[in-house]
Measured scan of single mutants.
Amino acid sequence: TTTLTYTDEEEARKAAEELKRRGITFTYTKRGGTWEIRIK
């Protein structure tokens, strides 16, 4: 499992869109002031 952490929502959203485009499965979690993208 790879976890990407972002403090900028815009960056996190761009990363999530890129992963979706590649067909990669991930979970997206907001934790306080950070956003976590966990790639399975």
Rank of each mutant, 00 (worst) to 15 (best):
Y28K: 05
T2F: 13
K30D: 12
G32L: 07
A16V: 12
I39D: 00
K40A: 14
K30F: 12
W35F: 10
R22V: 06
T5G: 02
T27P: 00
R21W: 05
R38Q: 15
K40I: 15
A16K: 04
E11R: 06
R13H: 08
I37A: 00
R31E: 10
K30N: 12
A12F: 15
G23M: 03
T5F: 14
Y28T: 08
E36R: 03
K40H: 15
L4T: 04
T27D: 09
D8S: 14
Y28M: 15
E36C: 03
T1K: 08
E17L: 11
D8N: 14
K20I: 13
T1G: 13
Y28I: 15
G33E: 15
A12L: 04
L4M: 10
Y28C: 06
A12E: 00
K20V: 12
E9W: 08
L19M: 04
K20P: 01
W35M: 02
T7F: 12
I39N: 01
T3A: 05
Y6P: 00
F26M: 02
T7M: 09
G23H: 05
E9A: 07
R31V: 15
K30S: 09
T25S: 14
G32D: 14
E11F: 04
K30T: 07
Y28G: 02
K14M: 10
L4S: 03
A15E: 05
I39C: 02
R13S: 07
T7G: 07
I37H: 00
G32V: 05
T2L: 15
E36H: 05
L4I: 11
I39T: 03
R21M: 10
T2P: 06
G23T: 02
F26V: 02
E10S: 13
I24H: 03
T5V: 15
E17D: 12
E18K: 05
T27L: 06
G32W: 04
T25F: 12
G32Q: 09
E11W: 04
T3K: 07
R22L: 14
F26L: 02
K20L: 13
E9H: 06
R31P: 02
E18H: 07
A12P: 00
W35S: 01
K40Q: 15
G23V: 01
L19A: 01
T25M: 12
R13A: 07
E9M: 05
T29W: 07
R13D: 06
Y6V: 01
